[in-house]
Amino acid sequence: MLNGEKKIKRPLRWAMVGGGRLSQVGYKHRTGALRDNTAFQLVAGAFDIDPIRGKDFGMNIGVAEERCYPDYQTMFLEESRRDDGIEVVTIATPNGTHYEICKAALEADLHVICEKPLFFTSEEVLEIKSLAEEKGKIVGVTYGYSGNQMLLQMRAMIEKGAIGDIRIVELQYTHGFSSTEEADRFSDAQRWRVDPKIAGPSFVLGDLSTHTHYMSQLIMPHMKIKKLLCDRQSFISSRAPLEDNAYVLMHYENGAVGRMWTSSVNAGCMNGHRIRIVGSKASLEWWDSKSSELLYEIQGQPAQTLIRAMPYLDESCLADERLGALHVEGLSDAWANVYLKFAVAIDAKNRGDDKTLNQLVYPDIHAGLEGVPWVEHCVRSADQGGVWIDYQEVPEK
């Protein structure tokens, strides 16, 4: 169980690029990183494309005025001249800026935590992976939902054969908050998400389904996609060619089949984030809206609901527990779990502790390497008219 005690010798000096006053994700990053005040200390930032607004915001959250910078280039340069300069930076900016900022951060000898999808192309991910290895730095990807510890329970049960051979994978991440065109006009954070120049080749496939795809890989690390078919729609026509709804069918190498439904136009839906894994003996189902519960259904027996923090759960699941079974955890705790693992990974990398790194389950550069081709393959299938295409994993150099 986690109780805020030190996992590393001292907090890492941390900065943010983006994540300012108008950001939809900045506060999630800060609550995650600072939940365990022994892991990170926010000391600097280039929080906004508007430097005056960014400085005002940074000072209002306790960052010293002289360390609220107008842009990331200035921050990396000035912080490199300080004895107490930053060691790690979070990139919480629109998709189209991730690659250039991540590369600049690594060249400044900083560890990196980056929003998803990591980049636009697999080639960019491989380049950054190579640079990170050359610099001896960690690149983490903020798949924040993956910090829900019941996902580790699913992983452990599948590894132990509790559901038998996997046959069906049912994935869903949907909501209804973009059901009208007004959402694009009145929200800065929404507007860039439907601009191909900034968001890249997809909207909900990159913004939503990459989370769920990574979570499925976390739960089933040995399951590999053989081929897929993607059908995507732009129900709000002004978003075309970017989709606001998509269905993806998958065939896995072991003979299992899968489906992903991702949508921002599921009108009336507040939170449709769901994972169901069907095996030859039993099924497991997790819903984000009931993140403390895991449904376990054995064929021919009464359904069981496993509850977070209970002693019958696997040790890997219990290790991320914070509040106890009586109290409800949520997204902030999931992000805190992910950020704490980023800190442990950075500390281990700095010390050359490969054993800890190899045992740690968290969204690293390999997770980014999986997420980018997922979007690429989906877009390619959809743009060819919704056809089956072979799924080629990116060869790691």
Rank of each mutant, 00 (worst) to 15 (best):
L2V: 14
K9R: 14
L12N: 06
R13W: 08
L22G: 12
V25T: 15
V25G: 12
Y27Q: 10
K28A: 14
R30D: 06
D36A: 00
T38W: 04
R53F: 13
F57I: 02
I61R: 11
V63N: 09
R67T: 03
C68G: 13
Q73W: 09
M75Y: 04
L77Q: 07
R82Q: 07
R82K: 05
T97I: 15
T97G: 15
I101A: 10
H111Y: 09
T121Y: 15
A132G: 04
G136V: 10
V139K: 01
G147H: 04
M157W: 15
M157L: 12
E182K: 13
D184I: 07
R193A: 11
R193L: 08
R193Q: 13
V194S: 12
G206N: 02
S209H: 02
M215N: 10
M220N: 02
K224P: 01
R239L: 09
L242V: 11
M250D: 03
W261P: 14
V265E: 01
N271Y: 14
G272M: 00
W287D: 06
E293L: 04
A303G: 06
Q304N: 00
C317V: 10
L318F: 03
L318S: 04
E321R: 02
G330A: 09
A334K: 03
W335M: 10
N337C: 05
V338L: 03
K341F: 00
A348F: 15
A348G: 12
R351I: 13
P363M: 13
A367H: 12
A367Q: 05
P373L: 03
C378W: 06
A382N: 13
D383P: 10
G386I: 07
I389D: 07
